[in-house]
Lab assay of single mutants.
Amino acid sequence: SDFTIRIGDRTLHLKNVSEEILKILEELLRRGIDFEELRKIVEELIK
């Protein structure tokens, strides 16, 4: 499924993301992860 994360004025667009990855990202966001850290993790996950 497609997913968009907005943190402040920044946006991260994800396409064809599995439910498992979404759950991980949601947990990281709940813990207050930094946007740049989140972006790096996402890039690793979707390689």
Rank of each mutant, 00 (worst) to 15 (best):
I24T: 12
D9V: 04
F35R: 02
R39Y: 14
V17S: 02
T4G: 01
E26R: 15
E19V: 13
H13N: 05
L45W: 09
K15E: 04
L38Y: 04
G8Q: 03
T11N: 03
L38F: 15
K15N: 04
I21M: 15
L12D: 00
E27P: 08
N16G: 10
F35S: 04
I24R: 11
I7C: 10
G8A: 02
T11R: 03
I33G: 07
I7S: 02
I41L: 10
E36S: 08
K23A: 14
S18I: 02
L29P: 02
L45Q: 06
E44S: 11
I5R: 00
I24Q: 13
E20M: 06
L45F: 07
L45M: 11
E37N: 09
K23D: 12
F35G: 04
R6W: 02
L22P: 04
I41F: 09
E43A: 13
K23I: 13
L28W: 12
K23Y: 14
D34E: 12
G32A: 09
I5H: 01
L22Y: 10
R39A: 12
K23M: 14
G8C: 02
L14T: 00
K15H: 09
R30L: 11
E37G: 09
I5V: 07
N16F: 04
I21G: 09
T11D: 02
L14E: 00
L14V: 04
S18W: 01
L28Q: 07
D2S: 03
R31K: 12
I41T: 12
N16S: 05
S1N: 11
F3V: 13
I24P: 05
R39L: 14
E27I: 12
L29C: 06
R6S: 09
F3A: 03
L28P: 02
F3Q: 02
G8W: 02
E43N: 10
K47E: 07
E43P: 06
K47P: 14
L25T: 06
D34I: 07
E37P: 07
G32R: 04
I5E: 00
R31Q: 09
V17R: 01
E36R: 07
E26F: 15
E36W: 14
E37C: 08
K47W: 14
S1G: 11
I21W: 10
K47C: 09
L25C: 04
G8R: 02
R10Y: 14
K15M: 04
R39Q: 13
E37F: 07
L29I: 13
L45E: 07
K40Y: 10
E26A: 15
I41H: 08
R6T: 14
I5Y: 01
E20L: 08
R30M: 08
F35L: 05
D34H: 07
L14I: 07
L29H: 03
L22V: 15
E43D: 14
H13L: 12
S1M: 14
K40A: 14
I5N: 00
R6P: 01
R6L: 08
V42E: 01
D9P: 05
L22A: 10
L38W: 05
L38A: 01
K15C: 03
D2I: 01
I46W: 13
E20K: 10
L28N: 05
S1K: 13
R39P: 05
T4A: 03
E27L: 15
V42A: 14
I41R: 10
R30D: 04
R10N: 09
G8N: 04
L29S: 05
K23F: 13
E44Q: 14
L29E: 02
E26N: 12
L22K: 15
R39F: 14
D9S: 08
I33S: 08
E43I: 08
R31N: 11
K40W: 10
E26I: 14
E44W: 14
V17C: 03
L29D: 02
D9N: 11
G32N: 13
I7N: 02
R10C: 06
E19I: 13
I21H: 15
R10Q: 12
V42N: 01
D9Q: 08
S18F: 02
L28Y: 14
L25Y: 01
V42D: 01
R10W: 13
K15G: 03
I41A: 07
R39K: 12
V17W: 02
I5L: 03
L29Y: 07
D34P: 11
S1T: 13
L38T: 04
E20R: 07
S18L: 01
T11P: 00
T11M: 06
H13W: 05
L29R: 04
E26G: 09
K40V: 11
T11Q: 04
L12P: 00
I7T: 01
R39V: 14
L25D: 00
L12C: 02
E20Q: 10
K15F: 07
R39I: 15
D9C: 14
S1A: 08
E19F: 14
D9R: 04
F3I: 14
F35P: 06
S18R: 05
H13G: 01
K15L: 03
T4W: 03
E19K: 10
R39W: 14
G8K: 03
K23Q: 11
G8D: 03
I41K: 09
E37Y: 09
T11Y: 06
L25H: 00
G8T: 00
K40D: 11
I46V: 14
E44I: 09
E20P: 15
R10E: 07
G32D: 10
L28E: 07
I46K: 08
I7L: 07
S18P: 14
S18N: 08
I21Q: 15
E44R: 11
D2C: 12
L29T: 06
T4K: 06
K47M: 14
R10T: 05
D9L: 05
D2K: 00
E36Y: 13
I41Y: 08
K15A: 05
I21N: 15
K23S: 12
R6A: 10
F3N: 01
L45I: 09
L22F: 09
E19Y: 14
T4P: 01
R30P: 02
R6K: 13
V17I: 10
S1R: 14
E37L: 12
I5P: 00
E20V: 06
E37M: 11
K47S: 12
R30I: 09
I46Y: 14
S1V: 13
E44M: 11
H13F: 13
I41E: 08
E20H: 08
V17E: 01
T4D: 05
R30F: 11
I46Q: 13
R30E: 08
R31L: 07
T11W: 03
E19N: 11
R30N: 09
I46S: 10
E43R: 08
E27F: 15
L12G: 00
E26S: 15
T4F: 06
N16I: 04
R31M: 08
L14M: 04
D2L: 00
K40N: 11
L29V: 08
I21R: 05
R31H: 07
F35T: 05
L28C: 05
